[in-house]
């Protein structure tokens, strides 16, 4: 059984092996108990009950006080990474646009000021580059994930 998940270091391929009711990965063992909870025995011998829930394509897993998110990549789908795109971290309103198309910016330079939940958030350049697109003006409402500007 093979699955692919997204991570910050690129896609992770997972190949599970199955024996009886148990799944194995890198020496850790998982058994589904009767109520759909997942009993995991780590390679170290520690036993934990994990909780898992899928929202959209993402599996959320809680185990021993830690919560992890693994976004599943459907077989055959392309891994569209938007290089240099700066997206709204949450829905809000554009208060101020600090740059124009063609401006050279350094990594960390403030590009735009958003207001959300009555707090101001600065959108900053993640790399050195040139602003090639500004998609919103002051006063515009933006949705979460909206592409605000592009820096190349």
């Amino acid at each position: 059984m093979q699955h692919t998940f997204a991570s910050s270091d690129g896609p992770v391929e997972v190949t599970l092996s199955k024996q009886g009711d148990s799944f194995f990965l890198q020496g850790h063992e998982l058994v589904k108990d009767t109520r759909g909870r997942l009993r995991i025995t780590l390679q170290s011998g520690h036993v934990h009950v994990a909780h898992a829930a899928k929202v959209g394509d993402t599996w959320w897993v809680h185990i021993n006080g830690r919560t992890f998110k693994w976004e599943r990549i459907e077989p055959g789908s392309s891994n569209a990474q938007d290089e240099g795109g700066l997206v709204a971290p949450m829905p809000g309103k554009v208060l101020e646009v600090l740059v124009s198309e063609g401006d050279k910016v350094a990594a960390g330079a403030p590009l735009m000021v958003l207001e959300a939940m009555k707090m101001e958030h600065r959108i900053v350049a993640s790399t050195d580059g040139t602003v090639i697109r500004v998609n919103y003006r002051a006063g515009d409402q933006v949705d979460q994930g909206a592409s605000l500007l592009e820096v190349e």
Partner: peptide, 8 residues
């Protein structure tokens, strides 16, 4: 282990 849980 979380990856194992997600895949399983």
């Amino acid at each position: 282990a979380a990856l194992l849980a997600a895949a399983s």
